[in-house]
Nucleic acid binder design. Structure first.
Lengths: 213, 213, 213, 213
DNA sequence: TATGAATGAGCATTCATTCAT
DNA sequence: CATGAATGAATGCTCATTCAT
């Protein structure tokens, strides 16, 4: 391992450390109110140091989303390319994957979905924005592939696979955000996982050919 | 009409005037960047005056959501209580209503959905929060009623009607927010209405008994 | 006097008040180290208030220069248009005017000369920059006129009047800045007025025809 | 050559290398915006290393001025002590020397003149400040000598030679700084050398006895 | 000697909110 | 009721300088 490589790895670790601290602060104070100083304090670093690893606050926040997108993408690609599963099993695996990603880090997922609809997107560096777009596209395309296989093998009704992928994604983000508000408005904490299960079941019911006359 | 009542009505008009101005500003500058002074200027009032009609900025913004919630609620109640329609027709009417609400004011709807998952909720006055909750509950309960009628008449599969209402709502907000991000990330402007149509169709496919074996 | 006009005047007074405070602070702390908060404190205002009257720090500082430029310009125009004086007397009046402007506010003059050679110029609002340019041009053109009259009446040697004006201006700023450094480096406080006198005398000697063979 | 001496020479080389890098950066980014890291990067050193050779940023910048002052001083001493030239020729040589110094490094000269009137002077180490003072004094004294010789030989009018030297220096810095601002304000790039020529000519006209009645 | 990661004080600017008129 | 000038706390970001290695 060259010295260059070791440094790069060290740098990556630092970034992780900061992102983890940021996440902890987000949990405690809520996204909107977190300041760079809060994050620095939590990471036991000085504010200036954060800027050695992230260009600005928006990029730090967006980087959190990037991580979970990477995880999601990896999992989806894996399902999509799984040779052992038939079309129907893949649909099931898709559902489970998404729920699993939700469980992996619910808070950051909320951050991601909020990012989607935000002016923040406009302030990101072109590189980071490109990365995010790329992962989004790639994930949706993996989902499309799964639906497409379903369509070809006659498991899924004949709709555009991309539209189905978009819908599933929208359902995912909609449920998660809606669940958030239920938590806040109704103190209804553990509603989400179950809601996701049911929603995806209904969604699959709707698109599976076998359930049709 | 007493003098008291006339004053109250006058007051309501002023509030409307401010809210309309706020909406115009939001359209032009984007939610995040709007200041109270912007709104005051647009309303041809002074900043101080806004505070005579709204406790603070959050409440002003949330009040915008309140209006569209009122509209939504009215429409849903109307569908739900329509004697002329059978269960199946009501499902169709429900779909159309929601799409119609979307078209009525897309931007404010985004605001509403963003509000759902936001810490802003915590800062609202108990009264306003109660109003919002009430309208949410009422709207969802109207939707539940429609689904319930469908279930009873054998049109809809046997799931909890409240869960179905939640899902439909989540689907609604998910699509709208996801559509927003598509606008920003892909400059894909007129995607939304069609996406809503398709998503609701699939959703109804999934829950209608007639489509099942 | 209309209400509008009174307000405008009030606003002007406030600006003056702030500028005077700024000047006081500059005297005490030196230009480079002064913060907006210092100025606000001196003006017995809050930092935010400064921004109601000046777009930003650079503009506040440049506005100080504007004032002395206005004074200079007024005086020069006056000399230039004075009917009672012949060409030779106008040269004398020009010299005295400039020295008088120096005495009017030496520190701000240093600020002005420093502004000349600074990247600050690039950050000013187009309007303010235009005002400054205009006053510079106008002042130099008044000086040119005086030299031109001297040339036409045979008092001054035959050089381009604009070049003479530039030179006199350069001499002025050069002496003032050089005098500043003498103050700092040699604690030589009262050197400047005398130096200006002598320098302008030599300059006039150099350009007056009567001193030539 | 002892080991001590070799080290000292090595150290000097490093300082030169850094100063040259600094100058390059100044040319590209403008004085105000240059950071120590910029300079370090350009010099292919680390920021920390700069502090092994210069006490702080101000000293680094002032050292640039020191170099051109050394050059100026050397040239002036040379003219002053030139046996072959008579008083009149020396005045001409003085003029050419100064213009030549300007051409040698205009940007650094601007830096020097700006330094003159700056609070930076107060932050320099006593040693560096002493060096700068010494070179200034020495240069002005060389100029004084030249004027003095002119006075004694009847070429120059009977004024204090030190005052004449001060004036010439002030004229020099005045023209250069004023020329800078013309560049910025009027995009008038190649004005300076010619302006210096003319200004010095007029100055010499003013102090030469031969031009008088 | 050289490094360069880390520091942290410092600062311009914004904007929701207030209150004297 | 209405005003709008004034507030001042809050915050993202910079960069000269240090110090452990």
């Amino acid at each position: 391992m060259g010295i260059q490589e070791r440094k790069e790895r060290e740098r990556g670790r630092r970034r992780q450390q900061i992102m983890i601290a940021a996440k902890r602060v987000f949990y405690n104070k809520g996204f909107a109110r977190v300041t760079m100083e809060d994050i620095a304090r939590e990471a036991e670093l000085s504010p200036g140091t954060l800027y050695l690893y992230f260009k600005n606050k928006d990029e730090l926040c967006a980087s959190l989303s990037l991580r979970i997108l990477q995880y999601l993408n990896m999992r989806l690609r894996h399902v999509s390319s799984e040779k052992e599963l038939d079309g129907k099993q893949k649909l099931e695996a898709l559902k489970n994957t998404i729920i699993n990603v939700y469980e992996f880090d619910p808070l950051i997922l909320v951050n991601l979905f909020r990012l989607q609809s935000s002016e923040t997107l406009k302030n990101l560096s072109p590189e980071l924005l490109a990365d995010i777009k790329e992962l989004f596209s790639s994930s949706l395309s993996a989902m499309s592939d799964i639906f497409n296989e379903g369509i070809k093998t006659g498991v899924v009704i004949d709709k555009k696979p991309e539209a189905l992928a978009d819908q599933m994604w929208a359902l995912f983000s909609g449920i998660v955000l809606w669940g958030e508000s239920k938590k806040i408005m109704y103190n209804n904490k553990d509603y989400l996982k179950q809601a996701l299960e049911t929603a995806f079941e209904v969604f699959l019911l709707g698109i599976k050919r076998e359930n049709r006359v």
